[in-house]
Structure formats: structure tokens, C-alpha cells
């Protein structure tokens, strides 16, 4: 059996998403074998993040500077804000670099059962950003789950009286998807969101 320290490290790594005890032990063994190179580099990277990690005051993104890299990028269009549930969604959208505007991270979704109320999300901050002027469009990019869609509906309603265009990500056919493989719900959505061609 390994020493207490190694067990502690394995237990900590096992809690990481997608890892689990078996993969964690494998990762520990990897680090132990490469204690000259990989281990110090990892330690340094972890410390770097720990020391500089901040939440962006504007959008709620997690970065090592405040305002975050997205908000402080002059090439980005601050008049357009994409609202997402979590930082993970922001990263997913930004990986593709398709959206040229800025973001707003809610920090979750409305859920009466889980006790997540509007004031627990950064909705007031979003309204403030929009109310401050200079914003033309809000893109609601919530998940297509029940709570996600309820949250989108809620935000759209709160934005109603503000001079801003509210749009929502389309639901429907995935790119490269075949019609006869889709479930009825997705097909119905795609049909509802059909649009003129050309």
C-alpha cells in the first residue's frame, strides 16, 4: 500500500470530474515517475492559478485578471452580450471563437426545488449592465433543459422594458444530423424554428 501522502493525493485527484479512483491512481503514478519534470511543472501551474485566480467583476468569467481576458479584449463587441449558465458554457462557446461579443455568466439556473432563486444568480448585474446603456443585443444561451429554458424565459421578461434586442440560441437539427435519427421533440423544435432560405 502507498504512503499516506500518496493516498491523499490520489483521493484528491479522484474527485476531479471524469477521473475516479482508478484514473487518479494512474495519474499519481505518472507524477511519481516524473517527479523531476512533470511534478514541479504541475505544482507551479497550480500555484500560479491559485495565486492569481479571480472572478471577473463584469461578466463573472474566471480568469487570472480582472476584468477578464474576454471583457478587456478591445476587438470584442461590447454591445452584444451572450448570457450563459456557467463558466463551462462560456468556455465551450468561446473555444469555437464564433461569438465576437462579450459574455455574462449567471452562475447557475433557476430551480425552485434546489432553492436557486433569481437573486442567487447574477441577473441584477446583467440588468445593470444593460441599463447602463451601450448594449444592443442579449443572446440567451441557456441549456435546452427545463430549468435552462425557464431561466431564459425569466430573463427575457425582465429585459422587456429595456431598449435591447433579446435573442435565443436555436434548437433543432444538429449539423450533419440525419432527420430519421432525431427524436420527435427535436424535430418539432426544428420545424417550429424553420426560416426562409436565401
Amino acid at each position: 500500500m502507498a504512503s499516506q501522502e500518496i493516498e491523499t493525493l490520489a483521493a484528491a485527484l479522484a474527485r476531479l470530474p471524469g477521473l475516479g479512483p482508478r484514473s487518479a491512481r494512474r495519474a499519481v503514478l505518472y507524477l511519481v515517475k516524473r517527479r523531476e519534470n512533470a511534478l514541479p511543472a504541475l505544482l507551479e501551474a497550480l500555484e500560479g492559478v491559485r495565486d492569481t485566480l479571480v472572478e471577473c467583476d463584469i461578466c463573472g468569467n474566471v480568469d487570472t485578471r480582472n476584468p477578464c481576458g474576454v471583457c478587456s479584449d478591445p476587438r470584442r463587441d461590447a454591445r452584444s452580450i451572450c448570457v450563459v449558465e456557467d463558466v463551462a458554457d462560456l468556455w465551450a462557446l468561446d473555444r469555437a471563437r464564433l461569438f465576437t461579443g462579450t459574455y455574462h455568466v449567471l452562475g447557475g439556473k433557476l430551480s425552485a426545488l434546489d432553492g436557486v432563486r433569481p437573486e442567487d444568480l447574477s441577473i441584477a448585474e446583467l440588468l445593470e449592465r444593460v441599463g447602463g446603456g451601450g448594449v444592443d443585443e442579449i443572446v440567451l444561451a441557456m441549456n435546452a433543459t427545463l430549468e435552462g429554458q425557464t431561466t431564459a424565459h425569466y430573463i427575457a421578461e425582465r429585459l422587456e422594458d429595456l431598449p435591447v434586442r433579446v435573442t435565443q440560441l436555436a434548437h433543432g437539427l444538429p449539423v450533419g444530423g440525419e432527420l430519421d435519427y432525431l427524436d420527435e421533440g427535436t424535430l418539432a423544435q426544428a420545424l417550429r424554428a424553420r426560416r426562409p432560405l436565401g
Binding site: 433569481p118 427545463l146 429554458q149 425557464t150 431564459a152 424565459h153 425569466y154 421578461e157 425582465r158
Partner: peptide
């Protein structure tokens, strides 16, 4: 309950 929240749930 906040009306806008109920609106969102009722739509679903």
C-alpha cells in the same frame, strides 16, 4: 412567487 419566474415555468 415572482411573476416572471412563474411565467417561465408556466410556458414549459
Amino acid at each position: 412567487p415572482e411573476a416572471a419566474w412563474l411565467d417561465g415555468i408556466e410556458a414549459q
